[in-house]
Design a binder for these strands. Sequence first.
RNA 1: GGAGGAGUGGCCGAGUGGUCGAAGGCAGCGGUUUUGAAAACCGCCGUAUCGCAAGGUACCGGGGGUUCGAAUCCCUCCUCCUCCGCCA
Length: 433
Amino acid sequence: MLDLRLVIDNLEEVRKGLARRNPEAVAPLEAIAELAAARREAIVAAESHAARRNAANQEMSKLPKQSPEFAQRRDELKSLSSELKELEHKRDEIEARIQQVLLGVPNLPDPSTPDGSTSEDNPVVHTWGEVPKFSFEPKAHWDIGVNLGILDFERASKLSGPRFSVLFGAGARMERALISFMLDLHTREHGYREVLPPFLVKDTALRGTGQLPKFEQDLFKTSKADPDKTYDLYLIPTAEVPVTNLHADEVLEAEQLPIAYAAYTPCFRSEAGSYGKDVRGLIRQHQFDKVELVRFCAPEDSAAQLELLTSHAEKVLQKLGLHYRVVQLCAGDIGFSAAKTYDLEVWLPGLSAYREISSCSSFGDFQARRAAIRFRPGKGQKPRLAHTLNGSGLAVGRTLVAILEQYQQADGSVTVPEALRTYMGTDVIRPGN
RNA sequence: GGAGGAGUGGCCGAGUGGUCGAAGGCAGCGGUUUUGAAAACCGCCGUAUCGCAAGGUACCGGGGGUUCGAAUCCCUCCUCCUCCGCCA
């Protein structure tokens, strides 16, 4: 969420920044200046009224309760009091409306986020490794995996419908191996603290990171098991949600920062709008595994923290020997809450294309304001909003896809990347494994 | 699922419907004293919001209500604890 004061004091600049995302992002802003003025008026009206009532009540408390003066004052105050209630309701209504507007406004792109409107406009930052060469026509992972008997889409749809998958044998083992490998790398070599959060969260958590209120259609919502519960739970679309909200409504100590968490979770996405894209294979599933990296830091530090975080995600691909490139998302392509984003795109020989395998973003104080994540810069100093960052480190299913495709052999087997062999207990996957 | 109990400032903990943003203690910060430290003593010590400021307003788990006035009374929800039952 953007700061109301920032918005009204710098309306033109905010408008320009949001317009870099797309022209429509500016629309909700139109009402805000007027609402802000109304808000101030309503606050002043209510509070001066309250001040009068409080003073009158103060005097009243000194009068003897049985005296005629007491009764007279009480009758006078009755109307003052009900007027106050009305003024307060009016004020609350305006504040709620402002909140509603503000919650729907995306983050301002960072100045270093390049102009552009679609993924076509994302500049390539750098490329790692070489496009693997094959002496045969490389297959897509769904053929490789099904032929090996480690991947089954038909049985998955019998169980759960489209966009689910079942892993068998070496496939299931590799998924588990990748999770362990990634967590071990980040906790042992990159200094992250492992965390295993809940996979179901309240709407407040989703509001904190920015998925709600705008993107409810992308989420799986559970229905009430207990009709008396006043809130519903949602399946997490990413570990970003529970892990970032770990520190919601907290004031962190400056010495604690930066805080770095690595979390494995399954992720659940309904992606109502995305049917027709990536219909085959493991790329776009309703359920997938991901190891997520989340960082909290002081505002001055967040630019450097994003570079660091991205390098940690890259390290996974490098250790696995997977060819990839890094692109920076342009203003039109960054997510709702993000200020700046690098995507890691791994090479998929079966598709002859680079596909996103990690997205590393800094959010400035956008999420911190929504979730009330603050830190105390020093002894006796006022709390300030922290900055939050996160990135996939990595999407596990897509990593499995990249390994199957980049390490496939002419005979249909798949070589296990060096780094994974101790986790897998084998150096090759053949049919029947 | 059943039966009870409890939520107050960073922590502990008092609080009769008005003088309570809230006693007291601990922790923390500043000072006096000291060669230095400890101890003792003195002072400071929540957050948000409106305002140039003085100052105002709001917050005692959340929301609603009663009242001229609510930390205090009522309703409701949430969370935690204890006991019983069930369960991986």
